[in-house]
Nucleic acid binder design. Sequence first.
DNA 1: ACTTCATATTCGCTTTAGCGAATGTGTTGA
DNA 2: TCAACACATTCGCTAAAGCGAATATGAAGT
Lengths: 133, 133
Amino acid sequence: MGKQKRVFEDELLFFRALADYTRLRLLNLMGTDEVCVCFFVEVLKINQPKISRHLAYLRRAGVVEARREGKWMHYRIIEPRDPRAAKIFKEVRAWLNEDADMQRDRERLAKVCCAPQPPLQLRRAPRPASLVA
Amino acid sequence: MGKQKRVFEDELLFFRALADYTRLRLLNLMGTDEVCVCFFVEVLKINQPKISRHLAYLRRAGVVEARREGKWMHYRIIEPRDPRAAKIFKEVRAWLNEDADMQRDRERLAKVCCAPQPPLQLRRAPRPASLVA
DNA sequence: ACTTCATATTCGCTTTAGCGAATGTGTTGA
DNA sequence: TCAACACATTCGCTAAAGCGAATATGAAGT
């Protein structure tokens, strides 16, 4: 048998995932449904590699999952496996939902998403389902 | 008016406080009531400056407070001011309470605390109230 | 006043996290 | 098959976190 698994490692990964502003902003934008990477880049005005790295982190932490659609990748929030983590995660998302700055981010997503003339980079990008109704 | 307060700073401080194993262990030991610094040192077998630094961190994050009793300092958990943080914090503590490793730490505290012949360093230290009943 | 004891803080160092720029990968359409 | 596109990953660097050792502080007893 190999070396013992490091103690409390999954739990710490979960908390560390929440301890970064960019990652909280990403989670916030995924609040309602899945979002395409290019929208994160546009709405948050953050370069693409940084966005991708933080999304990968969230995925390793078990709080989001990805779906491919052609060239595009959609990310959505999933329930953490541990029920305790799941409960905490729900509360965190509710907290984000209340925060004024986070609300502004969501409004920017809605705006970019529904604009009649979306920015060049997003002309052909698939929009978040709930926002195109 | 000065520079704008950095966005989401308090919330991040709170999450960062939870993103460290030593700090979670400290919070766990304070689960029931206030604990004297020297007990943390003895139970966790961690040097005193490290314990003090992490306790200071938890204090800055607004999740513990300190009380002096002569030469000794007692730390106890307090409710975070923000009600959302308070709710999350409660869940986190419940999670710690379930974890097997954390439970072992608490047992070690109870053992050290109630031993008829406590270790030299603790001969005269004030014991956690709830464990001397 | 001086010493001891419990704890806090500082200092120099090591490790880890996060970053932008560059590059790699996988998909689509010509 | 090749170019364009969307995204992921790697690379080298910088900044921040965490550490043990040393030192400072503050209360108590002599």
